[in-house]
Design a protein around this nucleic acid. Structure first.
Lengths: 174, 174, 174, 174
DNA sequence: TTTT
DNA sequence: TTTT
């Protein structure tokens, strides 16, 4: 299929601390439960109404798992960008069941902490620290401007001093 | 919750003609099944792999239901913008089940035909016709520039009385 | 053109208080300056680099202007969803100039405060309060579930008369 | 800044063939001019109105440059996902000027052909061919499902046969 | 300058 | 069940 897009963008709060587990070959997988909610005033009664939607987010991307583990806690506000995926499984009685999740994997995913009130405390407490646009300190840029802010790019116009000193390929932590 | 976002963007093809039904008070509801797919080359075997994901889209917005009914058919390519919603229901044995759908309702929804090869034929066949940025011909603009193309906004330049033919009110539940 | 999309999503901080002005017929227009920034570690030098991008956001939507006026201040963190528009104007010497802005107008726009450290103080200070998913308290829902939280939609289950207090019509120029 | 997002999503048509140039060190850069347009019916006059917006898209990502070069032509319909960037330059008279562009660079970018009627003909004609979800044939997956369709992932629940046979890291073409 |  |  030429030209398919499958994208989910959420901003919401974690209902619980992230759950991190590992595959048999040691790769981390993180699960988040995220609430988004909307409120409005009922036209007839004038009452304030609110509806909360819960989302399951599954993170396969190793760098983003680290972000989840280090920075996110119950109550944290996050920006999540991933894909919709429906997984088939069997319940105890052998019946087919389906679960739809927001999956973060590969290049078109993102996870960024937006603050919020994580329960904090201890060494692993959530903090609003800079983590490089969605990555831990040890990770490269998600999309730096080649040549920098005054970046003069391409063609014959020689970058003035700056230049394109680095290859983003190596900076992308997937 | 201050500042929640719940947004899904899909571009894909319809696996079947839209299904339209009506509520008791006459409002239309459309269901679409949309496939998105990705392909890649396996690192080890060099084989071409493909994975298709199926999405259920439910349209409550009346104008967008009309678009679905008039223009979309099995095979049509569409752009869809909506929200994730998980609905709880009971199966025959009384067990709780959950279904996650992409819901188009209210102001932050969109449905636009992008062409594709609907099965066509007959009076209702899909066509790549102009439908006003996601709306049927009888509908107004999704977001015209106040004051029109040469729209000169704000300040002293009074918008020249423009206006739009129709009230989307009925479709927008705020 | 069948099927065009023009969408910008920003999360960033206000570099200054919103500027509100009015058209001759009294409609408000708000201007925001929003910074987004990215940081990364330089591959060669190991230095931490950061680049900030500044965006001009213009709000024609009346409800969202109110949100800007009441809740946003220098330093506020916001989620913005709008469209790219390039405006042509003449400088003092009569030369054509172009400015590209993110425009919030019509149904596919959104503005939501995400917290942040507005400079606050006084009656109009920014606060992280709930403002209905991007709207002031007096505004309706951006996209409530027809029928409410337990909303059982379509078919025979008649939506229980719900409704919404206000007509966004004035803000939505279709 | 913790948690910044800068994202542009466009679907539109190319006003001209892509322009490809190269940096001094041989990296390709592609420029696209993309039109998005909206139409509506004027409420007062009943006339059909249309407004077209032109966008400049600059592609630094090498894989996406190849896609542009091989598949896109004047008239092609494309999906573009990138970032807003404003570049400062000096005109002949030495005055500061600014241009805002949609930049595709790094991991959160995408370019996908959606069909459309490129002018075609010759060896380089646009075609609706599969290019791997936005990448040329020689590139890996943008986001394959780890373990494949029946992929049962993580933890102690032994993947039934499947498993995590491959590392996406190597499949990402940046 | 595209597209419908 | 779509599409390439």
């Amino acid at each position: 299929m030429a030209g398919s897009v499958n994208k989910v963008i959420l901003i919401g709060n974690l209902g619980a601390d992230p759950e991190i587990r590992r595959t048999q070959d040691g790769r981390p997988i993180a699960n988040l439960r995220i609430a988004t909610s909307e409120s409005w005033r009922d036209r007839n009664t004038g009452e304030r109404k609110e509806k909360t939607e819960w989302h399951t987010v599954v993170i396969f991307n190793e760098g983003l798992c680290k972000v989840a583990e280090q920075y996110l806690r119950k109550g944290s506000t996050v920006y999540v960008e991933g894909q919709l995926q429906t997984r088939k499984w069997q319940d105890q009685s052998g019946q087919d069941r389906y679960s739809t999740e927001v999956v973060l994997q590969g290049f078109n995913s993102n996870l960024t902490m937006l603050g919020g009130r994580g329960e904090g405390g201890g060494q692993g407490a959530a903090r609003g620290g800079d983590f490089g646009g969605g990555y831990g300190d040890d990770y490269g840029s998600p999309a730096p401007s080649r040549g920098g802010p005054s970046g003069n790019r391409g063609g014959s116009s020689a970058p003035s001093g700056g230049g394109f000193s680095r290859d983003m390929d190596d900076d992308i932590p997937f």
